[in-house]
Amino acid sequence: MDTALSVQGLRVWRGRSEIVRSVDLTIPSGQVVALLGANGAGKTTLIEGMLGLLPMKADKLDLFGQDVRGSQPWEMVRNGLVVVPQDRYLFTDMSVQENLELASKRSGRSQEQVFELDALYDLFPRLAERKGQFAGTLSGGERSMLAIARGLALQPKVLVLDEPSLGLAPIVVDLIMSTIERIAHSGLPILLVEQNVHQTLAMASWGYVIESGAVTASDSSEALLRSDAILSGYFAVDVESVEGGS
C-alpha cells in the first residue's frame, strides 16, 4: 500500500528537553489516522517537529517516498504537508475571503486545485456567510472552520489537523467532525489529533496513542476502541488494578 507520510525514530526537542522520543508513525494514502493522547502527551510537539518548527532528529521522514528531513517548514508546506494548528493562527485583520485567497495563491499555479474557493465554501457554508468579515471577529467554531479551510486552500497532499474541535460546543464539534469526514472521503490522507476519542476513531482506520512523548499503543481503530490503551493513555490508570479492585 502507498504511504503518504512515514516517520521512524522521530525525536523532537522543546528548548533543552526532549519531548518526543523515538516515535514511529505511518499515514497510508487516502486514510484517516488518529493520534490520541492526554494534554501534555506531546501531540503538538510531535507535529511541530515533523513540520520542522522545532529541532528534531529522525531515522526516516518520508513524504510520498521522498526524504524531507531537514526541510524548512515552508518547504514542507510547499511539498504538501499542511498542518492546521491547534491555535489556528488566522490572519485576524484580513477577511475570511482574504485568508483563503492568500492560501490558495500560495499553493502555486502548477498544482491542480482540488479545493477551489467555491468548493471550500460548499464545505463550510458558515464561512460563505462570513466572507467579508474580519477573521478576528469569528466565533471559536468559525475560526476552526476557517483554519481547516485555509489549510485545504493550500492544496495539501497530507493534512494534519491538530485538535480542530478544541474548546468548542458539542453541536459545533459534531459539525466539524462530520465535515472532516467529508474531506476524508475526497481521498486526502489525514492525521487527526483529537481528544474526542470515539468520533475520531469512528472515522480513522488506524490509531496511535501517545503518552509522555512515546507511542504506547498502535492498532486498528476497532481494536483500540476495545483495548485498555485509551483508558490508560488518558487517565494514566493501571487498568488491571482497577478491575482487580472492583
Binding site: 515552508w74 498542518v83 492546521v84 494548528p85 489556528r88 493562527y89 490572519f91 493550500l154
Partner: peptide
C-alpha cells in the same frame, strides 16, 4: 498580503508556507 500575514500572525504565515 505576505507582509500583512507576517505582521498579523507569524506562526500563521509559517503554516501557510511563507
Amino acid at each position: 498580503q505576505n507582509l500583512r500575514a507576517c505582521s498579523q500572525s507569524l506562526p500563521g504565515a509559517v503554516h501557510v508556507g511563507i
